[in-house]
Every structure is written in structure tokens, then in C-alpha cells.
Design a protein around this nucleic acid. Structure first.
Lengths: 119, 119, 119, 119
DNA sequence: GTGGTCTAGACCACT
DNA sequence: GTGGTCTAGACCACG
């Protein structure tokens, strides 16, 4: 967690969970840490975690079981992939292309820069 | 101007001016519209334009001549290019690479997607 | 049982039993499954079933015979009908009427929609 | 506002605004009271109003203009109507039909009850 | 124990 | 002034 980031903490948590699902660190159908557990693990207020969980539930990534906790949805990974991929194509790719054009950078240059170990 | 965007308006103006300099729509050494002119043209609060101009001045893109107005710096275009390129390499490229990895997208796929006319 | 529903599980059980009495699936004066039996049949915490039974007992639908179990009250069906009908007229009908007014839906429209086989 | 209601306050506010748009009490394109104004008018915490506004924004009913406030979206009324109508057909109508069946109530009876002035 | 909501009060960026 | 986020702490219903 980066508290000095401009990105809201609840979104950082949201992204972190998405990432962990993609990484297979969080397994479908398994239970995820309770709101309170996650909050104390991340040194964050439970409300903040709650908000991240709610958004994930709204997207179908998490499923709440009353009085028990949140679970990773059976189809969470594919959903997460689609959400991320969709956002990538819809938002980030156009920006990338636009920048390449105005900055006059070619695909060759980018791939060259990408092989820089410092990244 | 997209006022329903999450990007601050002053940053949108900032980017717009940078863009216009790169496009040769704004010529080095020429005068740029006054804060008030720009503000009324964009239906925006003058404070907002002021902030964009100030940031551009801090980066050396604009030069203020007291009592006269703001001018495009002689070396504005090359500066603008460097600012953008630097930010691209330092910030955006690493994110891009990370996403490609977690989403399992290859350069070939990206270039394929990029040729989509909808973008 | 729909555990991903916003309706509390104990209420779902409560309604289910009422429904079965109205359907003649549960017969007056007969014994209903014990709390533990019902709980394990429904994969639910016994506390949850207990609460449903208690509410039904409070309304006179179930009768507890200590050490033996719960029984469907002799007049359970008529009671259930009245409870439901009363709640319908007191609570649901006014809401329905209000919605019809603000949404501009007429009785004819509703009856038309109702004949939709998808419902 | 009914603080002793089981329905969350933020949802009550959400519904109230929807209702006012349908009633033409809130006009499209006009500004709605600021979060703080609404909060003090309703004797409620600003966070609670904030949440209601956010949900309305997510549905396209409200539009935020940075630093200025929230506005009723141009197409707010039609959107509100659709949201409500959709929910009515998807959720409430099936329940109504089901109840009519189990309670043995006919359309004639309902319309008779509906003309009761006490409602 | 679980999550859901609310308040009070704070700090921030933006207009 | 505006909204957005966060914390701390409380209370509630549910299992």
C-alpha cells in the first residue's frame, strides 16, 4: 500500500486483489480474508477495505455469504482478465497510440526501450 | 474540454497546449491567448487557466512578460517533446509492460489491436 | 435457498414453511423436521433455523412441544393465509399503487406484462 | 427521512431524488443541492448524501462538474423511469403474481382493494 | 464471528 | 466554495 499515492487506497486494494487472482495467489471459490483481517493486515481502516470488497462484489469478482465472509467467485479469474483487458483496450491503448504519434515513437523504439533492464 | 472527466481541467488545458505546440498549432515566440481570453473561450474559470499557465511557465514552456502576456518559449517544442518522452519512458512504459505480462498480451497482439480502425 | 440473496436466510426459511403450509405440503397437526434435521438438510446453521421456527411459533403457526419437537398448528393454514393477505394489503398493495402512479403504468399494462411467459 | 427504517438512509435519499426527478420537482440540467447542503437539510452526515449521489452518478442520473457540484443529467428522467420500470417488471411483478397465486387473489379483488380510500 | 451502515471530523485537490 | 477519501469508533442484523 502506498499511502502517498494519488490513487485512492481502496482502489489500490481493489487492484491488488485483481492482481492476486490473476497470479493464482487467490484461488477461485476460496474464502478471502475478512474485512477486519485484511484491514489490520494492511494497516488500513476496515471501511476502506469494505469499499474495495463492495466494488469487487458489484463486478462479480467476490461473492458474499451472509455472516461468513467473502469468497472468490468461481469465474473470478476470467472476469478479472476481461475487466483488465477491456480497460486496456478501451482506455490505455488509444492513449499509447496517440502518444506514439505525437512523440514520433515507433514500435521498434518502444520494444528497444522495453528491453532496458532498468524497467 | 471534457468536464466530466476525472482528469483535472487545469491538466487538460496543460496537455492541450503541449499538444498544440507539438502540432505546430502554437508557434514558438508567439503570444498565447491571455488567461481571461482562454478562460472565456473554454467556458472555464480563469483560475483554472492560470494554474495551467503557471505549470507551463515552471517547466519553461511559457514565458510570462508582465503586463503583456504569456509567450511560447523559443525552445518550447523541444522541451515539450522531452517532457512527454521522459514521462512516457519513466511512467507509462513500465505500466504497459507490467500489464502485458499479467494479461498475457504480446507485442504482436497489441499491434494487431492497434490497427483496429475503431481506435 | 438462495444464500447470495439479500433476504436473510432465516426469513427465507420462514417464508418457505409458510408456503409449504399453503401448498398443503405441510399438513396441520403433523410434526415438522427438528431444528437440527432442517439445518443439515438445508446446509444452514441450526441457529438460523431456530430463529425461523421461533418467529413462526410467535405467530401461532408452529407449536413447540418441549422435548418432542415442533408441530404445525391445527389452524396453521388459515393463520398463514391471513398473515400473508394482511401484509399484502397493508404493505405491498400501497407500494404497488404508488409505483403504478409514478411510473404511469395502468392495470391493463400490468395484466399484459403478467401474461409474459418469461415470468 | 425515516431513521427507524430498515432501508439504509443513503438508499432512501437515492429513491427520493429519483422520485423528485420523475415528479418534475428536479429539472434536468439544473444543479442539485451540494452534498453539504443536502446533508444539513436532511439532518444527515455528508458522507451519507455523498454515497447516494455517487450511486446516482454511476447510473448516469447525476453528473458531477468538478469544483462546482452535481447536476441532473439531461436524460435523467427517462433513465430514472427505465431504472424503476425495469426493477418493477424484473423484481416486483413476479412477486406480485406469485403472491396472488398462493393467496388466491384475483385481479378483480386487487382492483377492488385498491379503490379503498384508506390506501 | 461476519458484513453493512452511519456519524464526526479531518485532510486533500480542484474551481 | 465544491466533491473525494480516509480514520476512528459506534451500532446493527445475521449466522
Amino acid at each position: 500500500m502506498d499511502f502517498n499515492n494519488q490513487k485512492p487506497i481502496f482502489l489500490q486494494i481493489y487492484d491488488l486483489i485483481l492482481e492476486r487472482i490473476l497470479n493464482h495467489e487467490l484461488i477461485e471459490n476460496s474464502r478471502i480474508a475478512s474485512v477486519r483481517e485484511m484491514a489490520s493486515a494492511m494497516l488500513v481502516n476496515p471501511n476502506t477495505v469494505q469499499r474495495a470488497y463492495s466494488e469487487l462484489q458489484a463486478k462479480g469478482i467476490l461473492i458474499q455469504q451472509r455472516g461468513i465472509g467473502y469468497f472468490i467467485a468461481p469465474e473470478a479469474r476470467i472476469l478479472a482478465l476481461n475487466i483488465r483487458k477491456d480497460e486496456f483496450i478501451r482506455v490505455q491503448l488509444p492513449i499509447l497510440l496517440h502518444q506514439m504519434q505525437t512523440l514520433g515513437i515507433s514500435w521498434e523504439e518502444i520494444q528497444l526501450l522495453s528491453s532496458n533492464p532498468a524497467l
